[in-house]
Simulated scan of single mutants.
Amino acid sequence: MACLSDESRVPLPQVKMIPASLPLPAQLPDEQDEHKPFNFDSFSIAHRLEKVFPVYAMGTPNPDSDSVLPSYFGNSNCADPIWDAVREEAKLEAEREPILSSFLYASILSHDCLEQALAFVLANRLQNPTLLATQLTDIFCDVMLHDKGIQRSIRLDVQAFKDRDPACLSYCSALLYMKGYHSLQVHRVAHALWGQGRKVLASALQSRVSEVFGVDIHPAAKIGEGILLDHGTGVVIGETAIVGNRVSLMHVRCNFGGTGKEIGDRHPKVGEGALIGASATILGNIRIGEGAMIAAGSLVLKEVPPHSMVAGTPATVIGYLHEHDPSLTMKHDATKDFFKNIAAI
């Protein structure tokens, strides 16, 4: 593991962190201020993310992809608010826990961008005696640094973890420790490799993720951005499955599978903004409508209408939702009204 240089051991400055949930300022800063050093005291992460992801990160329809690609991609002179936040958090943690300083330096502070740090973290989680960390780092960096779609997705995903998962302490903790996030980003690389015809390598990454994290996502599966894969353990997503943008998948045995030995298009299609409860199983080539909620433990065998709530085995509609994207609010607690609806099935 890399060691801190003498220069890096100088006491780190105190930085006041601003929560990402703060309200946005009424007016954006002047254009001449954009290239000034990042000041956490006066310019919140939420403000800067609003400039980078102007509307789509807020849950509105995706505009033309070329118009929303962050300007800092491929330009080291432009600020990256997510990467800035990760680095500042890592510096603070190194100061609070000196025993982790070498780990934080090697994983985050020694790198130039989020893609390089993520590649390093993923490679060291997935390495084995015959699949070396250096080889994996090269693979991940080569794909991520040349794919603007992945660059965008890894940032929207980490924002989803920070916003929706109460166990996520910081952007830094999601990048370093959350295997749901790790599994998702390896899948994005594997999916890109699959599309390039490098199917053996993509399958090798899938297999390794399944062994290490207990998450099995076929490289051909199509997964949108702004995804929360909570915990990840036991999640299975089949080859022809499609998961829309801003979907939240709760932990343990979320199974998007087929119903037997059929071939062709045989897996579920999950609409944008859906919330899939823990231990839910969705089988067959069926559609889960936009903004739908699948209750924990449900077995879904037929299509789910948009903005509806289904529960049971087999699942049936027990109500409809007023919120546009339940995946963003994460209101899936077992309230009295919820139990009343269940009893009426």
Rank of each mutant, 00 (worst) to 15 (best):
Q196Y: 12
I150F: 04
R155T: 08
K222V: 12
V200M: 11
D41S: 14
S173D: 12
Q206K: 12
I276H: 00
T134Q: 13
I223D: 00
D147V: 04
E88K: 08
G214E: 03
I217C: 05
F40M: 10
A344L: 13
T233Y: 12
L249E: 00
G277W: 00
E31Q: 10
C168F: 05
P129E: 08
Q159M: 12
F53L: 01
S101C: 08
A296L: 04
K51Q: 14
S173H: 13
H218I: 01
L69K: 14
H267L: 05
D6L: 09
C78E: 15
V121Q: 11
Y171K: 02
L126G: 08
L132K: 14
I150C: 08
G74H: 09
A57Y: 01
S5E: 07
H218P: 05
D147N: 10
V212F: 05
V215Y: 02
N62Q: 14
A167I: 07
L145T: 13
V247S: 08
A315R: 04
Y177Q: 15
P166S: 12
R266Y: 08
R253V: 05
Q14P: 01
I263Q: 15
E34S: 11
F161E: 13
P11S: 10
R198Q: 15
F103H: 13
V212D: 04
E89A: 06
I223R: 00
V55T: 13
K199L: 07
A46N: 13
P166T: 07
D6H: 09
L114A: 11
G264C: 03
Q185G: 09
V300H: 05
A334Q: 14
I242Y: 07
S5Y: 05
A311G: 09
D41L: 10
K91L: 15
P37I: 02
N39S: 15
H218W: 02
S183I: 04
C3K: 15
M17W: 11
D163A: 11
F256Q: 03
N77H: 13
R188E: 05
L126A: 06
F53H: 01
K16A: 15
L249R: 00
L131I: 11
